[in-house]
Computed example of a mutant assay.
Amino acid sequence: MAVIALMAPVVATDIVAGEPLPYHIYLANGVPLANRGQILTDPDQLEILRCQGWRGVSEEGVPPADAIPPDEAALRMDRQAPVRCQPQARPVLSEATGLVADDMPLSLKLLSRLLREQGVHRIVAAENGRQAVGQFFRQRPPLVFLDIDMPGLDGIDVLKQIKSWSPETFVCLVSGNATMVNVKVAKTYGVDAFLVKPISGLNLQRVLSLYGPLTLSAD
């Protein structure tokens, strides 16, 4: 995707189930969500794009009246309409997809391997917070591990975004130096567990014991 000079909120009526998207769509902080020409049918994804999506605006031609610089758009994230996805049942580990985000390749590879050894069915890897949010939007895995100290969007930023969409998703923050401030803030956003580096199989097993399948009530 090209460098964005200006951003403008999407036109909700442009987002139609089963029809190609008319432009690339981002969150207000510039995280890519969907590409021009992509066809989506998932109601939750469509609602996120309509309520929280932004489009990049070219410097050529006359920009729309609501176009603003990217840094100003990012400041408006917390003022946008919230979107809560339909709750999903949490599967057992042997059927679950886990998302792992870490900017350190060795840590990413190690945690992914340990999760497989603990019986997690499938692993999706992200090299930074932006990728993590995009992967979650596309795949909505029920189990997420986020390194706190990632550049750009850190683990707490990603935690906040994921929990705003899907509170039932199990999110664990990973860090070698988690501060009390980080812990306190993460708890306000609904973090489910913490994992301290260096990661051991025993500590990971302890965290996964908190996961547990989640069934939805008939209500």
Rank of each mutant, 00 (worst) to 15 (best):
S217Q: 14
L214D: 02
P64K: 05
L143S: 02
P69L: 11
V181Y: 12
G152P: 03
W165P: 08
L99K: 00
V191F: 07
T188I: 09
T13N: 15
L21P: 00
G134P: 09
A73V: 00
K163R: 09
P43T: 12
N29G: 04
R55Y: 04
A125Y: 05
P87Q: 05
V11K: 12
S175M: 03
N29D: 14
K109A: 13
P69R: 08
V16H: 00
V11T: 13
A193L: 08
V92C: 09
A34M: 01
G98I: 04
L214N: 06
I68C: 01
Q88I: 06
E60S: 13
D71H: 12
E60D: 13
I39Q: 11
L75M: 14
A101N: 00
A193G: 07
T41I: 15
G134N: 15
G56R: 06
A74C: 13
R84I: 12
L114R: 04
G152N: 08
L195A: 05
A218V: 12
P9A: 13
P9R: 15
P142L: 03
L111Q: 01
D42C: 09
M7H: 01
A125I: 06
A89N: 03
D66P: 02
L40M: 07
A186N: 09
P82H: 10
G53R: 07
G190W: 10
N29R: 08
D78H: 08
V158K: 03
D66G: 02
R122N: 06
S112E: 00
I156V: 12
R130F: 10
E59V: 15
V120G: 00
F136A: 04
H24D: 14
Y211F: 11
Q88F: 01
L75Y: 10
I4G: 11
A34V: 01
Q135Y: 05
R206H: 11
F145K: 01
Y189I: 12
R90V: 11
A73Y: 03
I123H: 02
P63V: 07
G56D: 07
Q131H: 13
L195E: 05
L115W: 07
R50P: 04
I123E: 04
I148T: 09
Q118A: 10
R140N: 11
L33F: 03
D102F: 07
A5N: 02
G176T: 07
E59H: 10
D192L: 04
L208T: 05
Q86H: 11
P70T: 11
L202F: 10
L93A: 04
S58M: 00
G152F: 10
A89G: 05
L21N: 00
G190N: 11
D147R: 02
A125E: 12
I15C: 11
P213W: 06
I15A: 08
I162R: 06
